[in-house]
Design a protein around this nucleic acid. Structure first.
Lengths: 139, 139
DNA sequence: CTGAATCCCGAACGATACTG
DNA sequence: CAGTATCGTTCGGGATTCAG
């Protein structure tokens, strides 16, 4: 029992997002993308076609949407299915893994919508304070 | 009753992260930052000094950390306190508002640490598939 | 319709040096 | 210790064009 087959119950790897070399950093960096959150939440609602997504997410360019979808597919978070119609039809849908993440990022979007006013108020107060300091400095 | 004072019970503003012009986009964009998540979670653990944060978050440069902290302070998510010691001591701490967000982003970090292996497996499978397609194309 | 490829610019970042 | 300032560089991302 002391040596040999080390697989089975390997010690839980000490993944930490605070280690620069930790692969979890890659995941966080992936999520640190303007569009990933929006795409995941959209696809969590149901399958979408390319231009359907594009229209539903204002401001995203075709290039960036394409790139982002490809990365998400590579990460196993979404699935791409092409139908040999004319013209070709492509449908994106979320995977079970992606769905678990979508629920988390959805909370982020909800937080943003819920606390936006508090944030904007804080910004206004901060800017006013800075403005006061600036004029005091020039006086 | 038909016209006049429209204030009181204004219709709930239809904030949506999917509208390009919606201010919630700004918040999402702010969160879409490699370091914001890490900083917020760190400060949720307790107050930290500047270089303490810097050391605790591998890979962040002093410049970027400074910028990010300033933005977070402006958003009302963290508070900066300077003590007139020699040399000067600065302490950053999280606000109640920031704490509500920290709990959400903490879920993200936990997701990353929990599902990193599934993601890496998906990436490997995807890359193998692409490699197969590539060699098939050249054949 | 769904992308891939190209060009191009501004924002962001790292490194360094300097200040209080 | 806790930043700010400047510089040089990289890189993401928008607009456009081409292809299956």
């Amino acid at each position: 029992m002391s040596l040999g087959h080390p697989a089975e119950t390997a010690p839980p790897p000490p993944y930490s997002v605070y280690s620069e070399s930790c692969p979890t950093r890659l995941v966080l960096d992936r999520l640190a993308d303007k569009w990933v959150t929006l795409i995941l939440v959209r696809l969590a609602e149901g399958p979408r076609r390319f231009n359907e997504l594009r229209r539903g997410i204002e401001g995203v360019s075709q290039k960036v949407l394409s790139q982002t979808l490809k990365r998400l597919e590579r990460d196993g978070l979404i699935v791409r299915r092409a139908f040999p119609t004319v013209p070709v039809t492509v449908e994106y849908s979320i995977t079970p893994l992606g769905r678990t993440l979508a629920e988390t990022v959805q909370a982020l979007a909800r937080w943003a919508e819920a606390h936006i006013e508090a944030v904007m108020a804080a910004q206004a107060a901060y800017d006013a304070q800075i403005g006061a300091q600036a004029s005091r400095a020039t006086t």
